[in-house]
Design a protein around this nucleic acid. Structure first.
Ligand SMILES: [Mn+2]
Ligand SMILES: [Mn+2]
Ligand SMILES: [Mn+2]
Ligand SMILES: [Mn+2]
Lengths: 218, 218
DNA sequence: TAATAAAATTAGTTTTGTCTAATTTTATTA
DNA sequence: TAATAAAATTAGACAAAACTAATTTTATTA
């Protein structure tokens, strides 16, 4: 059985392994991802290597073993299922659920994920648009196309969000954007790449390029 | 904010303070209750005293402060609400829920208990018959009359269980006894105080005195 | 290539919560 | 009361997970 901390490292490593831009999972990348000191990461790399959950090669960086990936996916499964529970059953807001799920994901008991899954009606996606791994570890591909790469004049459907910080989610809430919202790209401002968009055919609104980068479309 | 460990100590101390047989909450009583070494308890007594959650007097033993009791009750509230959730919503068995709730009770977030309470329809008692504290900390009195003190020939309603171990609960399950079951005391065997009982007017069954001591009646 | 910068690692420290073994204090009993 | 037993405490150790500061290794760039 893995500790909370080991689980958080596995999850962070898995997340990095899913990012196409990251070719090598380095000590410093893990440290940054978790907000920890690189020296602490070195210790944990040793520990997880001993437990055969990762492999570490100075050249190639960190890689999850089959077992490590399996463990990571089960934590992600629980995280996303709990998020659905918190939003749909306990009526928490979009921007509140992630942090609570961060704690709930570590609760260990045979069947817990499966029972929760059944209770929630086997949801496919979590409230941020991320796919929920199935009991067997199979997981649909995450949405990766960003609204930032959309064409001016076209309309897109919000499928997921890249950033799950409450600052971003609260901003989305304020703009009345959620999963399923239609966004039309009206114009890009040459000066700073900010964009004029229309939300569900509403009045034009200007948002930053950083903002649209964090919106994923289907 | 208190750590998991501090919370478990507060809960143990609260539980001891509710036991009429316990006149003084001693280091060793806490140690036994938690399965820890007395030396560890001494350390934690110091820590909780510094945090003003308990008061310790060599003569009178340990006492929760107002704040300590408040904190303890909130953990018990969460524990019992989660137990209801696990049984009613996730369909866990009676004997499985306690251990999972032991972990869930430590999840901290404003509102979590209140939202769960609302979602569950404001239950009064947990699946073991223990009263669930209200948001304001008010709590109905626990059932304390034991079936062991019943009169031969009389019939009693099972209101709660004193022991919540899975061994005991599985045995109850096997005997088809749960909260609300009617039990008639037929005869006490002089030799070893074992009792012949009838469960919901069924065939006579013999159980030990230890067994009936752990059944609470209303 | 040599100088510099960045990344990784080592060494040592801290906090939390536990332990064992030894000792001291308190209570019980002959 | 004196001897003994039980309870509480102290002292010191350990594991987990983090840290800082110093050093070494690797990569980049003049
Ligand atoms: Mn999340
Ligand atoms: Mn987490
Ligand atoms: Mn319980
Ligand atoms: Mn607990």
């Amino acid at each position: 059985m893995n500790t909370f901390s080991e689980e958080n490292y596995l999850k962070a490593i898995f997340r990095l392994s899913q990012m196409p831009a990251v070719s090598k999972i380095s000590t410093s990348a893990i440290a940054e991802s978790l907000g920890n000191n690189p020296a602490s990461v070195v210790d944990m790399i040793r520990k997880l290597t001993d437990k055969q959950l990762i492999e570490y090669d100075k050249k190639k960086g960190v890689k999850l073993t089959a077992q490590g990936e399996k463990d990571a996916i089960q934590i992600i499964r629980k995280h996303r299922l709990w998020e659905v529970f918190l939003l749909e059953k306990l009526e928490y807001r979009w921007d509140e659920i992630h942090d609570i799920a961060e704690e709930l994901e570590h609760i260990k008991h045979t069947d817990l994920a499966d029972r929760l899954d059944k209770f929630l009606g086997f949801p496919e996606y979590d409230p941020h648009g991320d796919p929920i791994p199935k009991a067997n570890g199979k997981m649909a591909k995450s949405f990766s196309a960003s609204l930032a790469d959309g064409k001016t004049g076209s309309t897109y459907r919000v499928a997921a969000v890249r950033d799950t910080s409450s600052a971003f989610l609260q901003y989305l809430h304020k703009l009345k954007i959620s999963i399923g919202t239609q966004i039309r790209l009206i114009e890009q401002i040459a000066f700073d790449q900010s964009l004029v968009i229309s939300i569900d055919n509403g009045e034009p609104t200007t948002v930053s390029s950083k903002f649209v980068e964090n919106i994923l479309i289907s």
